[in-house]
Amino acid sequence: MKSKAKQNLSLLLFVAPALIVYLLFKLIPAISGMFYAMTDWNGFYQDFQFVGFANFGEIFTDKPFWHSVWFTLKFVVVNLLLSNGAALALAYYIESIRKGKSFFRTAYYLPNMISGVISGYMWMFIFTKVLYYFADNWGWAFLDHSWIGDPNYSFIAIVIVSAWNSCGYLMIIYIAALQGVSPQYIEAAQLDGGNGWQIFWKVVFPMIRHALTICIFWSLNNGFQMFDTVYTLTGGGPGRATQTVALNIFEEAFQGNIRYGYATAKSTVLFLIVFSITLLQLRFMKMQEEEL
C-alpha cells in the first residue's frame, strides 16, 4: 500500500512541471474568464459591473458571431479531411519506401516547425505576388484569382496553409501507428491475394484506428481555435467573410467597442461547443475501436 502511494507521488512529481504550467496558464485563466463573462468589463477601465447571464443572452442575436461559427465549422470539416487524408497518405508512402525515409519524414515535418503567423505571412507573399507572377508572365490564367480578397478563394487559401502547416505533425503520429502494425498481418494478406488498397483498407487501417482518434481529436481542437493563419493571411476579411470564432472573439475584446466581458462569454460558448464535439467524437471513435 505504502509503495503504491510512493509510486503515485513520484508519478505526480514527474507530471508536476507540466501540470503547474497547465494550471497557471490554462485552467486558472479559463475559470477567471468565466467570471469575467458575467461582467460588463471593457478590459480597459479598472471598474466593472456584474451583469449575470446578460452577455450569454446577447450572443443568441449576434449575427457576426454565428457567421464566424458557421465559417469555423466549414473550415474544421474541410481542414480535418484534407490534413488527415494527406498526412495518412504521406505516412503510408514514407513507410513503404526503402530509401530516404528519414529525409522525407523531416522534409514533410518541417512546415510544422514554422509558426502559424510566419507561415501566414509567407503564404501571403505567395498568394499576392508569386501566383500573380505566374499568371501574368507564364500565362497561367487559372491562378489569376483574388486569393485574399474573394471570400471563396480565401477560404481555399486558408485551408491550404493550415493543412500544409499541420500535415507533418499528423503524419508523425500516423507513422508511429503504422510502425506498430506487425508485418506478419500484411504478409498474410499478401499471400491471400489482397491488392494494395485492400491490404491498406482491410488490414492496416483498422489497426491504426487509435491514431486516427488522436489525430481527429487534435484536428478538431486546433481547427476550432484557428486564429494565427487567418489573422495574418486575410485578417478575417474582406469585411468579416473569413472571420473564425477566435478572430471574432479577438475583435470583440480588443477592437471597436472593446467588450472584454462579452468576448469572454463568447469564448466560454466556444469552449462548450469544442468540448461537446470532441467528447462526442472521442466516445464514438472509442466505441468503434472497441468493436475491433
Binding site: G149, P151, P238, G239
Partner: peptide
Amino acid sequence: EQGKLLQELYVGT
C-alpha cells in the same frame, strides 16, 4: 465597421 464594410463593398458582398 466602415473599413470592413468598404472592403465588402469593393468585393461586392
